[in-house]
């Protein structure tokens, strides 16, 4: 049973279909281990965004508030989704990578200081 309801044929109205986001899809991005801002962030993004644009524009917009972000080399990061690790193709788009609406992608970089809990 998918819901306990007084009407046996009850079904819910899904509010968050991709058609509601004005041509964008939602992408959740998580910078792993950086606990000071390491919870996943949610951004609306065109499915035609290339991975290169993601690294050069979208991710810096999120994380440039981190004072040491300039020392991070995103091109050396390790990437994964809930299905496991993947190697991005910089010229290919979000949708080429198979990232559907509301997908979560995660990346890992080298620690920024000797004490990882500082940043």
């Amino acid at each position: 049973m998918t819901v306990k309801a007084i009407n046996p044929n009850y079904s819910g109205r899904y509010r968050d279909g991709v058609e509601n986001f004005h041509g964008n899809q939602l992408l959740n991005i998580c910078w792993e281990k950086h606990t000071m801002m390491g919870w996943p962030m949610c951004v609306p993004i065109s499915p035609n965004t290339t991975f290169k644009e993601l690294l050069d524009v979208v991710i810096p917009r999120i994380y440039s508030m981190h004072p040491q972000f300039d020392s991070v080399d995103l091109y050396k990061a390790h990437w994964s989704t809930s299905k496991g690790a993947f190697i991005p193709d910089m010229s290919k788009t979000i949708s080429d990578h198979g990232f559907k609406h509301k997908e979560q992608i995660r990346f890992r970089t080298q620690p920024l200081s000797n004490n990882p809990h500082r940043g």
């Binding site: 962030m41 949610c42 508030m65």
Partner: peptide, 8 residues
């Protein structure tokens, strides 16, 4: 330090 992006 401030965060400006909405969370998941």
């Amino acid at each position: 330090f401030t965060n400006t992006t909405l969370p998941q």
